[in-house]
């Protein structure tokens, strides 16, 4: 999975540069997040602007990151969801679990 990692103050921004998140590539995101947690970086923002398709494996990877961030008193925020991707969070009720923002700036500006 193509991921771009950048940092802004205490936040680490993970930009997913893939149209599709499924069982073939979601494990990479999960592993990369675990590496960041091991480095003590626990304030994550995941930019999903490029993602057109997400399945239960992709959602599972994000839930894994959310749980690990929360366990370390950190946070995992999502931003820039395309409508079909947003509908998957509603279908699985995960929109009640995650903080979801329209833009990256809003996610970075929000208080954890």
């Amino acid at each position: 999975m193509q991921l771009k990692i950048s940092e802004k103050e205490e936040n680490v921004i993970i930009t997913v540069e893939e149209e599709r998140m499924d069982a073939h590539n979601s494990g990479n995101l999960k592993e990369r997040m675990l590496q960041l947690f091991d480095e003590g970086k626990c304030q994550l923002v995941i930019d999903l602007a490029a993602v057109r398709f997400i399945d239960s494996s992709g959602l599972g990877a994000l839930v894994s990151g959310f749980k690990n961030a929360s366990a370390r008193d950190g946070s995992l925020k999502l931003c820039c969801l395309q409508p079909q991707v947003r509908s998957m969070f509603e279908l699985t009720r995960l929109h009640r679990v995650f903080e979801i923002f329209t833009t990256l700036e809003e996610a970075l500006d929000s208080q954890s």
Partner: peptide, 12 residues
């Protein structure tokens, strides 16, 4: 459960 990592595929 909302915080389970797996088990959503069949439900979807």
């Amino acid at each position: 459960h909302p915080c389970d990592e797996g088990g959503r595929g069949v439900n979807i």
